[in-house]
């Protein structure tokens, strides 16, 4: 389908025309995260990125796998049938979805994730104001990258330009055809110019060429000790990473009822690898930090052929002790022969 456009004041009408559950960034407490909204809700997409990535919709921090009742034999499976639209996803986070898709459909097709994924249309918003730690262009993305998106919006000031990318994106445009207008050649050119300007604003860079092998060479290198020593072992970097997908499965009971749920887990926690015997194969922050970097840039890359990092910069922005993945990669590249 062709490029369309819509005046910002009519964007609510666009949303109302879609008969789907909408998710958009809203303030919860002090920070932005994706929550269900209605077309009447005030939408503010003028931000660099959300604190909590949109993975919290497809892979919620707490997800019920099934419910049970004592004395009964049947399990009560949750059914999340709603067609969803994620609004205002940044291209980096959308790429993260494309990466995580591979994982959840690899040796086992995860019905919880895939069920939601198939019913979700991802509407991206091209990034115009990258933060200081953004480095998407170094890991194969960009401020207007389309991978993982169904529809890309570009903010042209008064109007949004809509660029459908998949059949799901086309469907959205068809559903809301009444409120959309045909975009002109000038609009498309203006959007292209904005995309390039945004890419030019990205200052941090890393050369990922060969880093997968280099990391393996440096398995026992002293740099891991030096670079990880300040780590506190909290889960900020992993919980807020759009490509981190580790989970734990917990049973929670309340009276005669209970549920089995999966919750986010983090490889930065000491108990993540703790064995029942008391032995911990990753006993200190050194091994855990190494695992986090290696997993993203080496193990995942070896298995799936792509680096599991989209350069959103959250782990750098939010690390309490300034452990900087770009700095680690720079050291790795420097140390490897």
């Amino acid at each position: 389908m062709e490029r369309m456009k819509i005046g910002k004041e009519k964007f609510g009408d666009f949303l109302a025309a879609l008969d789907k559950q909408l998710y958009a960034p809203q303030k919860v407490g002090e920070t932005l995260r994706f929550v269900p909204i209605t077309p009447e809700d005030k939408l503010d997409l003028e931000f660099s990125n959300t604190t909590v990535p949109p993975k919290s919709v497809l892979f919620p921090q707490t997800e019920t796998l099934y419910r049970y009742e004592l004395g009964k034999t049947d399990l009560n499976l949750p059914d999340d049938e709603a067609e969803k639209v994620l609004l205002g996803v940044r291209p980096c986070d959308a790429r993260a979805m494309a990466i995580v898709d591979d994982l959840f459909s690899w040796d086992y097709n995860d019905p919880y994730y895939q069920g939601k994924r198939e019913k979700t249309t991802v509407v991206g918003l091209a990034c115009s104001d990258p933060e200081v730690n953004c480095f998407c262009t170094s890991v194969g993305g960009g401020p207007a990258s389309t991978e993982g998106l169904d529809l890309l919006l570009t903010d042209l000031g008064e109007v949004y330009l809509l660029q459908p990318l998949t059949e799901k994106g086309n469907n959205l445009c068809r559903e809301a055809a009444e409120v959309l207008e045909q975009a002109t050649e000038e609009d498309a050119a203006a959007a292209e110019k904005l995309h390039q300007e945004a890419a030019g604003k990205i200052v941090r860079k890393v050369d990922t060429e060969g880093v997968t092998e280099k990391l393996m060479e440096l398995w026992d290198h002293s740099l891991w000790q030096d670079l990880s020593r300040a780590c506190l072992g909290c889960g900020t970097c992993t919980f807020l990473c759009p490509t981190c997908y580790c989970f734990d499965i917990q049973d929670e009971a309340e009276g005669l009822e209970g549920r089995r749920c999966r919750v986010w887990d983090s490889c930065m926690f000491a108990e993540y690898t703790l064995h029942a015997s008391g032995h911990n194969p990753r006993p200190t922050v050194r091994e855990r930090t190494r695992n986090r970097v290696n997993h993203k840039y080496s193990y995942f890359a070896t298995k799936f052929g792509k680096i599991a990092c989209v350069g959103c910069g959250r782990c750098i922005n939010l690390c309490p002790v300034n452990i900087d993945i770009l700095n680690i990669l720079a050291e790795v590249i420097k140390e490897a022969i």
Binding site: T236, L240, W264
Partner: peptide
């Protein structure tokens, strides 16, 4: 405030 907590436990660890 509490509903935004992601339980990363950085407050505890630091």
């Amino acid at each position: 405030k509490f509903s935004s907590c992601i339980r990363c436990y950085s407050c505890r660890n630091v």
